[in-house]
Each structure stands twice: as structure tokens, then as C-alpha cells.
């Protein structure tokens, strides 16, 4: 396994997610900052004899609470993401991991004007893998599908248990992918990750999906 290259790809992913989260937290801080400033403005105005409407204060307070909840969700995801590096191999529930990567990708999706819908099966799919690199390859698949999805701009992600393996399907890709040659994916970095994860990527021309095939236990 080309450890140095896998490490570089992972570090790049970690940096990208951290930068995205810091941007989002900055936005949240900016909203809280303006609302705190607004309370200050209203207080100064009330000192000059202009009464404050209690409903107005309730409304500002609700906005601040909403932003704190938003930050809490983002930071919970970030914490899970950061701890995914703790162990080289770990037991994970695939649906949870997909949802986490979708949460981490939310800002990228919003920037691209794309919706991401996850349809996980109700039965948990437990796999043993490298959690961090699995997140990296899932993120890259989501990103590719976001850039190449059909009109309507929704990426659908479904997972499936196949006994000794599991699959994650990303769709639907645009019509122009008439052959695998047009796809230009996976590229070098994805191939290194796939190799490290003992996984494979298949383009399904019938369903217009990118399918990630992963072993249930990477050590077997």
C-alpha cells in the first residue's frame, strides 16, 4: 500500500473538511454577532425613550438559539470525523458513516446547488474498515456525483448488504456517460484509496449509478 500517497490524500480531505467547517462556523458567529449587536442597538434606543417590543427580543433570542443548535450539529459531526482517525481499523455502521459524510458535505452541496438524499436500509450494515479512508472515498464519490448528476440536481445514495460485502450506490449520473471511457473516474487518487480499502468502483450504465463495492471485513 503506498502509505505516503494515501496519507497525502487523507490529509487533503481533512484540510478540505476543516476549512469548510471553519467557514460555516464563521457564518454562524457572524449571525450571532449581528443579533447581539441588534439587542445592543435596541437597548441604546430604549435608553433614549424608544420602548423595546418584547416580541422583538423573543424573535432575536430564537434566532440565536437556532444558530447555536446549527453550530452544535456541525461540531458534533466534526468531532466524530476527527475521531475517525483514532484507529486504523474499526467496526462501523455503514448508514451512520454515509450520513456523517453527507453532513460534512452539506456546505459543498449547498454551494453547488445540489440536494443529497440518503436512503439507508433499516437493517444496520456493520463493516470493519479504515473509517477515515472510507469517509474519504465516500466524500469523493458524492463530490463527483454532485458535479455530474442529472437535471433536478439531487444526488441519491443507497446502501445494500450483500453478505460478505456491501455496496453504496451514488446516482443518478447524467446521460453523457455512455461508456466507461467518458467517465474519467476513478482517477489516480481514488484508485489508491480503493486499493487501500480493498474495494472496487463500478459504473452501472443501466442505473446511471456509481457503485462502490466494499468488503464487510477489510482484514479477511
Amino acid at each position: 500500500m503506498p502509505f505516503k500517497l494515501v496519507g497525502e490524500i487523507g490529509l487533503k480531505f481533512f484540510g478540505k473538511i476543516s476549512a469548510s467547517i471553519s467557514h460555516e462556523i464563521k457564518n454562524i458567529m457572524a449571525i450571532i454577532n449581528e443579533n447581539a449587536g441588534l439587542i445592543e442597538d435596541l437597548t441604546l434606543m430604549s435608553e433614549k425613550g424608544i420602548p423595546i417590543d418584547p416580541e422583538r427580543l423573543k424573535n432575536i433570542s430564537a434566532k440565536i438559539i437556532k444558530q447555536v443548535a446549527r453550530a452544535d450539529t456541525i461540531l458534533k459531526n466534526m468531532n466524530k470525523f476527527a475521531h475517525s482517525i483514532d484507529e486504523p481499523f474499526g467496526q462501523i455502521e455503514l448508514g451512520e458513516l454515509i450520513s456523517l459524510v453527507c453532513g460534512l458535505s452539506a456546505r459543498f452541496a449547498s454551494m453547488k446547488g445540489v440536494n443529497v438524499e440518503v436512503n439507508n436500509i433499516k437493517t444496520p450494515i456493520i463493516i470493519i474498515t479504515n473509517p477515515f479512508f472510507m469517509q474519504t472515498i465516500i466524500f469523493r464519490c458524492i463530490n463527483f456525483t454532485m458535479d455530474n448528476c442529472e437535471k433536478g440536481k439531487t444526488v441519491f445514495i443507497t446502501s445494500k448488504d450483500n453478505g460478505n460485502s456491501a455496496t453504496i450506490a451514488f446516482g443518478k449520473l447524467r446521460e453523457f456517460f455512455e461508456s466507461k471511457e467518458n467517465l474519467n473516474f476513478p482517477q489516480k487518487e481514488e484508485k489508491i484509496l480503493l486499493n487501500a480499502l480493498k474495494s472496487e468502483m463500478i459504473l452501472s450504465l443501466d442505473t446511471k449509478e456509481l457503485i462502490l463495492n466494499i468488503p464487510k471485513d477489510i482484514n479477511k
Partner: peptide
Amino acid sequence: DDEEELVSTIAERLSY
């Protein structure tokens, strides 16, 4: 700004 709660609050504060 795509954050409506930010941009509307800045506008209100500027109006004061």
C-alpha cells in the same frame, strides 16, 4: 449574502 439572518440584521442595524 446567502445567510438571510445575517444580511437582514446588518440592514436593520445600518438603518438605525
